[in-house]
């Protein structure tokens, strides 16, 4: 029985912290939840290799989301190519499609909130990614690294999305 390395514990601790954020982010790609869950496993196994090789520990949160972003893109491509079971369906629209949400869940989301979610669904995909990463706590600089766009584009994207959301509130 090999002794468990401290890196394993560290990765599990990071998994505890970032599993939900990473899966929520991957759902913005319209992946089925089971695939997102499996990809999250792969992300943290890659993280283990990364740390075991003594690679940089600077900004692990950014690293995790960058790898998650790339694997989600790749996975979606494969699903589209190799399977007809995959229908692109951004996850925020599933509320409307879900036939039987529990009563407390129906109550949990107000009409205004439903309207906000539908505004988000109507945004271009890149803006949805930006907003989702910001919602998961990434700073502009980290978002720009994950999406490989400039800081200016991050700020412009968030500004655009937020003003649409604010207008949704006023109508």
């Amino acid at each position: 029985m090999p002794i468990r390395s401290p890196i394993e514990d560290e990765v599990v601790a990071l998994f505890e912290e970032f599993r939900a954020p990473v899966i929520r982010y991957m759902l913005a790609f319209g992946l089925p939840i089971a695939d997102a869950e499996e990809l999250a496993q792969e992300v943290f196994l890659s993280l283990f290799e990364h740390l075991r090789r003594g690679k940089s520990r600077a900004n692990l949160q950014g690293w995790i989301f960058r790898v998650a972003h790339n694997s989600a893109l790749k996975c979606r491509l494969q699903l589209r190519r190799h399977s007809d079971r995959f229908v692109y369906e951004p996850v925020l629209s599933m509320a409307a499609a879900d036939p039987a949400p529990g009563p407390e869940e129906t109550l949990a989301i107000s009409q205004w909130q439903q309207r906000l979610l539908s505004v988000v669904r109507a945004l271009p995909e890149q803006d949805q990614f930006c907003l989702a990463l910001r919602a998961e706590g990434l700073r502009y600089r980290e978002i720009s690294e994950v999406l490989d766009i400039s800081l200016g584009s991050v700020a412009a994207s968030l500004e655009k999305s937020l003003s649409r959301l604010m207008r949704a509130e006023q109508t």
Binding site: V91, E105, Q113
Partner: peptide
């Protein structure tokens, strides 16, 4: 409100 809606949904 957006964060609340998103979290409730996801």
């Amino acid at each position: 409100e957006f964060v609340r809606a998103r979290n409730a949904e996801l």
